[in-house]
Simulated scan of single mutants.
Amino acid sequence: MLKCYDCSEENKVSEAVGVCIVCGKGLCMDHIKEVELPMKGGYPLPHLTLKKDLPRMMCRECIDATIGDIGCV
């Protein structure tokens, strides 16, 4: 079973429930964050915007490096 990367750095052991979409590390419920990112179409539908943002799972470090606190659930 995949273990939480952030917990292992704190000398703890817990099972991961998801993976950060940016860096790919496994994360437990305490370390994973849900971020709603607006999705816009590309080729072949460049002007298409989805009606609803799609939830994505990220680690706190990647959120801070990419979008900060904007959009964090």
Rank of each mutant, 00 (worst) to 15 (best):
M1S: 09
M1K: 14
M1Y: 12
M1G: 12
L2I: 11
L2R: 03
K3H: 13
K3L: 13
K3Y: 15
C4F: 12
C4D: 09
C4Q: 09
C4M: 05
Y5S: 04
Y5L: 14
Y5P: 06
D6R: 15
D6L: 14
D6H: 07
D6Q: 02
C7G: 01
S8P: 01
S8N: 09
E9Q: 13
E9T: 10
E10L: 13
E10D: 14
E10Q: 10
E10K: 10
N11Q: 15
N11H: 13
V13Q: 02
V13C: 00
S14I: 02
E15W: 11
A16S: 15
A16I: 05
G18M: 02
G18C: 02
G18L: 06
V19W: 12
C20I: 14
I21F: 14
I21E: 14
I21L: 11
V22D: 07
V22M: 04
V22S: 13
C23F: 03
C23M: 04
C23W: 07
C23I: 12
G24N: 04
G24D: 05
K25A: 07
K25C: 13
K25T: 14
K25L: 04
G26N: 07
G26I: 04
G26Q: 14
G26P: 09
L27M: 15
L27I: 07
C28P: 13
D30W: 04
D30P: 01
H31D: 03
H31Q: 13
H31S: 05
H31L: 02
I32F: 07
I32C: 06
I32W: 05
K33C: 09
E34D: 05
V35S: 09
V35L: 12
E36K: 15
E36Y: 15
E36F: 14
L37A: 05
L37K: 14
M39R: 10
M39P: 00
M39A: 03
K40D: 03
K40V: 11
K40R: 10
G41S: 02
G41Q: 08
G42L: 01
Y43G: 07
Y43F: 05
P44F: 06
L45A: 03
L45T: 09
P46T: 01
H47E: 10
L48G: 02
L48R: 07
L48D: 04
T49G: 09
T49L: 06
T49W: 06
T49Q: 15
L50G: 05
K51E: 14
K51C: 04
K52S: 08
K52H: 06
K52F: 09
K52V: 07
D53A: 09
D53F: 06
D53Q: 10
L54Q: 11
L54N: 11
L54E: 08
P55H: 08
P55R: 01
R56F: 13
R56P: 06
M57G: 01
M58L: 12
C59I: 08
C59K: 01
C59T: 04
R60D: 14
R60L: 08
E61A: 07
E61L: 06
C62F: 03
C62V: 05
C62N: 03
I63M: 02
I63Y: 04
D64I: 15
D64C: 02
D64E: 14
A65L: 12
T66M: 04
I67N: 11
I67V: 07
D69W: 01
D69V: 00
D69C: 00
D69T: 06
I70M: 02
G71W: 06
G71L: 01
C72K: 15
C72W: 12
V73N: 06
V73R: 03
